[in-house]
Design a protein around this nucleic acid. Structure first.
Lengths: 126, 126
DNA sequence: TCCACATATCCTTTCATGTGCATATATTAT
DNA sequence: ATAATATATGCACATGAAAGGATATGTGGA
């Protein structure tokens, strides 16, 4: 992956928030959408943008498209994602997003009936 | 400094090359221009761009404008500048620029008469 | 004061990027 | 086959950044 392309990707707060989420594990589009409180189109386009660059991977699980960081993560990307957490004063949303993510995942853990949890399990082993 | 602004700054190879140079020490505009082989306008604009964001500092020495990295360097910027050197396979110009920089500084060391070396000495102590 | 040099800024054009709406595709259940 | 859900894409528009040429500003020397 070209370095400048990676930096261009990091220029958008929405994309940063998505990457910050994926750093914790795979997520399907609708959950990213819910956490960020954005429209489906916007999220989908950002994901396509990153997919084309190889910055995220995608895998289908039924109707869900599950996005994740590639293995291994590009070292420069990883380094910058670490920086994000360290600078939570500038972007409180990064920590809040992770909080919301936990809540959502917990919701599915509690209600297996309508749960796509297998999606995340099979993806991460968590 | 805002993080996204920093990433926008890093999106341009010319700016990356300039930052890579400044990482080694202050430089005046004409030398940056010579090393990168670019027009004066282009270099000057890139420098103004970064100056406005606080990514570089500037100090006048006679007719020369000497640019440098701020003290202390923004941690995220510093981390990424380290990455640049590590990825010299993608951008050979980064190492070449440093080579050219050394040559130019040596040229002034050998010919003190027309030498603005005091500029660099007073700026860094090197 | 006038000139030469180094550097910065103005203005215009061009090009890339983000956004919204409508719509298309793919999968599952009925 | 059809409907419903999740997701992706095409098109049009607005916005912002990059580039080039010309010109302005500031400094030191004659």
């Amino acid at each position: 992956m070209e370095l400048v392309s990676l930096y261009k990707c990091l220029c958008d707060v929405q994309r940063l928030r998505i990457l910050n989420l994926l750093k914790e594990g795979p997520l399907c589009v609708c959950h990213i959408q819910e956490i960020l409180g954005e429209t489906q189109v916007k999220i989908s386009k950002q994901l396509q943008y990153m997919k084309k660059l190889g910055i995220v991977w995608v895998r289908r699980e039924g109707v869900w498209m599950v996005y994740s960081l590639p293995v291994p993560v590009h070292p420069v990307l990883l380094a910058n994602l670490h920086c994000l957490q360290a600078r939570s004063d500038e972007f409180p949303c990064f920590a809040e997003d992770l909080q919301t993510r936990s809540t959502i995942l917990q919701r599915y853990t509690d209600n297996l009936a309508e749960c796509p949890q297998v999606v995340y399990q099979s993806a991460t082993g968590r």
